[in-house]
Amino acid sequence: MRYLIKRLAFLAFTLWLAVTLNFLIPRLMPGNPAQIMVQKLVGEGPVNPQLVRAVGIMLGLPRGTLWHQYVLYMHNLLHGNFGVSYTYFPYPVMSVVAQALPWTLILLGTTTIITFILGTSLGALAASRRGTWFDTTATITANFTATFPFFWTALMALYILGFVLHWFPQSGGYNAAMMPQWSSAFVISAVYHSILPALVIVLTGTGGWLFGMRNNMIHVLGEDYVRLATAKGLPRREIALAYGARNAILPNLTGFAMSLGTLVGGSILVETVFSYPGMGYLLFNAVGNSDYPLMQTIFLFITIGTLVANFIADILYGVLDPRTRRGGVSA
């Protein structure tokens, strides 16, 4: 219980910090992003003054104390008002982000879970069969795939599997001739388009988990309780799972933050290479067009997503490790 409260407090604190960081970055940076944006917007044609004001609140108003601006910013944030996008003028940022968000959530959510499960199981297997051909092959392969740059793997996959072999589409999140809707044809098309990006993320992201798990598990397999489990005459499989993997997975969860960071960064590059209609590609375009309100909002959403994912990993750790739980029979 105490652990849960602690993690919740940390989540709340980091969320607040991310929001505040988002407020401060455009204001502390050289130049005047707000002014550049407003000028750009005016150049597009007649603008709703309310939207211009919202942009100012996101990026820095010319007037008012910093505190006043902060209060306004928080107020707008809580009402889902993130200003207007320059690239997708006159759409508000929120609606642009809302379109991209599900794509990334599904792509990154699925691949994170797949890489974690795949990497952890392969790592456990490699550790329990240490020194065999499987161990050697797995670690050397992972050594290579994990150090390949995401975008390069993506380019190669695109070239070979998309351009040369025509097995998969080369860009986009769905067949461009279709309208996004909940039809089976559209869903099939979306899944088909997402296979290649997902494959690249899984291929590159699995290695980190594999190494983490393998090293943890080798450490755990040397512990006295594993030796005792052997002496107990338990089947090998049970020792590897209930004693080895069960204990080794805990430190692997502690490393979740770093591996997730790698995946998030990697997915931005992968989405860009495949022109996948998610947050990463949107961020790429926003930066390219100096669309600051859109960029800030995407950054905020990516950060919040990462924080929540880390929170879930922390909670999972708490559930799996009895030492974080209080109570039991002893006083």
Binding site: E223, Y225, L228, Y243, R323
Partner: peptide, 10 residues
């Protein structure tokens, strides 16, 4: 050193 001979998660 039976301190560490019991599985900590069971």
């Amino acid at each position: 050193s039976s301190m560490n001979a019991l599985n900590p998660v069971a």
